[in-house]
């Protein structure tokens, strides 16, 4: 991952493995590992935030957030 890539954080405790983020990412950033989203293509992320908005469990934060 280079410096320009968008930061994505996934709260594994909150994730219920519904798979919506994996299926509907326009850039195929995630793959499923037992239902969990695994980031495999971070450089492709365009910061559209659709996965964050569609996550029913508020488990994803994409870009520009003070992730600690």
């Amino acid at each position: 991952m280079d410096e320009k890539s968008i930061r994505i954080s996934i709260d594994e405790k909150a994730c219920k493995k519904c798979g919506l983020c994996i299926a509907f990412c326009p850039m195929k950033v995630y793959v499923s590992e037992g239902g969990k989203p695994i980031i495999v293509n971070q450089n492709a992320c365009t910061n559209c935030k659709l996965c964050e908005l569609r996550c029913p469990d508020y488990a994803i934060i994409v870009g520009g957030e003070d992730v600690e």
Binding site: K13, K16, K17, G19, D57, Y58
Partner: peptide
């Protein structure tokens, strides 16, 4: 009160 009780993939959270 979180996580909510809604099922995996339920649209209510969205």
């Amino acid at each position: 009160k979180l996580p909510h009780i809604w099922c995996p993939g339920c649209g209510h959270g969205i």
